Simulated assay, not measured.
Amino acid sequence: MSAISHSTPSPMTMTSEDLDRREKTLVALIREAGALAQRAFAIEGGFEMKGPQDFLTVTDAAVETLVRERLKRLFPEDGFLGEESGGTPGEAVWVVDPIDGTANFARRIPHYCVSIAFVGGNEMLLGAIYDPVHDELYFARAGRGAFRNGMEIRVAPTAAAGSACVELGWSTRISNGVYLDVLSKILGTGANVRRAATGALGLAYVADGRSDAYAELHMHPWDCLAGLLLVREAGGVVCDFLGRDGLESGGAVLAAAPGVADLMIAASGIERA
Results as ranks from 00 to 15, higher is better:
residue 1 M to K: 08
residue 2 S to N: 12
residue 6 H to L: 13
residue 9 P to G: 08
residue 18 D to F: 09
residue 20 D to S: 10
residue 20 D to A: 11
residue 24 K to G: 08
residue 28 A to I: 00
residue 28 A to G: 01
residue 31 R to L: 06
residue 35 A to E: 14
residue 39 R to Q: 14
residue 40 A to Y: 05
residue 40 A to N: 12
residue 44 E to P: 00
residue 46 G to H: 07
residue 47 F to Y: 15
residue 51 G to Q: 00
residue 51 G to P: 00
residue 51 G to R: 04
residue 53 Q to F: 02
residue 54 D to L: 11
residue 59 T to A: 08
residue 59 T to C: 07
residue 62 A to G: 00
residue 62 A to H: 07
residue 65 T to G: 04
residue 66 L to Y: 13
residue 71 L to E: 09
residue 73 R to A: 12
residue 79 G to Q: 10
residue 79 G to R: 08
residue 79 G to S: 10
residue 81 L to D: 04
residue 85 S to T: 14
residue 85 S to G: 09
residue 86 G to V: 06
residue 88 T to W: 01
residue 89 P to K: 10
residue 95 V to M: 02
residue 97 D to H: 00
residue 98 P to K: 05
residue 107 R to W: 00
residue 108 R to D: 12
residue 111 H to N: 07
residue 111 H to R: 06
residue 111 H to P: 00
residue 115 S to Y: 01
residue 116 I to K: 00
residue 120 G to L: 05
residue 120 G to T: 10
residue 121 G to T: 02
residue 121 G to V: 01
residue 124 M to F: 03
residue 133 V to K: 12
residue 136 E to Q: 11
residue 139 F to I: 10
residue 140 A to N: 13
residue 151 M to R: 11
residue 151 M to W: 01
residue 154 R to V: 11
residue 155 V to N: 08
residue 160 A to Y: 06
residue 164 A to W: 03
residue 167 E to T: 15
residue 170 W to Y: 14
residue 171 S to Q: 10
residue 172 T to S: 15
residue 173 R to M: 13
residue 175 S to W: 01
residue 178 V to D: 08
residue 179 Y to K: 07
residue 181 D to V: 01
residue 186 I to C: 10
residue 188 G to F: 09
residue 192 N to A: 15
residue 194 R to C: 15
residue 194 R to D: 10
residue 196 A to K: 14
residue 197 A to K: 09
residue 199 G to T: 10
residue 201 L to G: 04
residue 202 G to T: 10
residue 203 L to V: 01
residue 205 Y to H: 09
residue 207 A to R: 12
residue 208 D to M: 06
residue 214 Y to P: 03
residue 214 Y to N: 06
residue 215 A to I: 15
residue 220 H to V: 08
residue 226 A to K: 00
residue 227 G to S: 07
residue 229 L to D: 08
residue 234 A to W: 02
residue 234 A to S: 04
residue 238 V to Q: 03
residue 239 C to Y: 03
residue 241 F to R: 09
residue 242 L to Y: 03
residue 245 D to W: 02
residue 247 L to M: 13
residue 253 V to M: 00
residue 254 L to K: 05
residue 256 A to S: 09
residue 256 A to M: 03
residue 260 V to C: 04
residue 263 L to N: 06
residue 270 I to R: 12
residue 272 R to A: 15
residue 272 R to Q: 14
